[in-house]
Each structure stands twice: as C-alpha cells, then as structure tokens.
Deep mutational scan, measured.
Amino acid sequence: DRYEFNINGVHFTIDDAEEELIKLIEELLKRGARAEEIEEVIRRWER
C-alpha cells in the first residue's frame, strides 16, 4: 500500500509501506518528530 503524510509542509510518500513502519511513523508524528528524524527511520527500515 502507498502511505502518504506531511511534516511541516514536506510531503512524503512510501510505496509498499509495511504496517509496522506506518505505525512507527505515526507514533513519531504524535511525538512531534522532525522530518529529518523520520527520514532517518525510513532509511534504516529500508536497509
């Protein structure tokens, strides 16, 4: 599934997002994580 979200006006799209990654990102968003922090999480996840 495609997952899309915005952080401070920056648009992100993840194709074939796994449910666990989506939950992790949503938790980070609730905590007010910065875009750079979430980008790093996504990079690590994709390795």
Rank of each mutant, 00 (worst) to 15 (best):
R43S: 08
A33Q: 04
V41F: 13
H11W: 15
N8V: 03
E19N: 07
E37G: 02
R44Y: 14
R34A: 14
E18D: 14
L28W: 05
Y3M: 03
G32T: 04
L21C: 03
V41K: 04
W45M: 02
E36K: 09
L24Q: 14
L29N: 03
E26A: 11
E46C: 07
R47G: 11
R31V: 10
E26V: 13
D16C: 13
I22P: 00
R44T: 12
W45D: 01
I14P: 00
L29V: 09
R2Q: 07
E18M: 03
E4S: 05
F5T: 02
E19Y: 12
R34K: 13
K23C: 04
D1L: 15
E36H: 08
N6E: 14
A35C: 08
N8H: 08
L29D: 02
I42A: 02
D15L: 11
K23I: 12
R2S: 09
F12P: 00
K30H: 11
R44E: 12
E18V: 07
I14F: 04
T13R: 08
A35D: 03
L21V: 04
D15N: 11
I25T: 01
E4M: 03
R2N: 06
K30I: 11
G9P: 00
T13W: 12
G9S: 03
I14E: 00
I25F: 02
E39C: 07
L28H: 11
I7L: 08
L21T: 02
G9E: 05
E4Q: 05
I38P: 00
N6V: 15
R44K: 13
F12M: 05
W45F: 09
E26T: 10
E40T: 07
A35Y: 10
R34Y: 11
A17T: 07
R31I: 11
R43H: 15
E19D: 11
E27H: 13
F12V: 05
R43K: 09
E26D: 08
R31L: 12
E20F: 06
E40H: 06
D16H: 14
E37F: 09
I7N: 03
A33P: 06
N6D: 13
E19L: 10
I42R: 02
I38E: 00
A17C: 04
D16V: 12
E18F: 03
I42K: 02
Y3I: 03
R43F: 09
L21G: 00
K30L: 14
H11K: 12
E27S: 14
E19R: 05
R47A: 11
L24H: 11
H11P: 07
E19F: 12
A35T: 10
D16L: 11
E4C: 09
L29E: 02
H11F: 12
L28A: 14
E19P: 15
L24P: 00
D1E: 13
K23Y: 12
H11S: 13
I38G: 00
E18T: 12
T13Q: 09
W45S: 01
A17Q: 06
L28D: 01
E18S: 14
N6M: 14
A33E: 04
E20I: 05
E20T: 09
E4N: 03
E46I: 10
I14R: 01
R34S: 14
A17F: 05
E39K: 11
D16R: 14
T13V: 14
F12Q: 01
D1S: 15
E20H: 05
N6P: 01
E36D: 11
I14K: 01
R44V: 11
V10C: 12
V10S: 06
A33L: 04
V41G: 02
L24G: 04
R31T: 10
E20K: 07
V41E: 11
L21Q: 03
H11I: 15
R44I: 11
L24T: 13
F5D: 01
R44H: 13
D16K: 14
R47N: 10
L24N: 09
E20V: 06
D15A: 08
L28F: 08
I25Y: 00
R2K: 10
N6S: 14
L29G: 03
G32K: 07
I7W: 04
G9W: 01
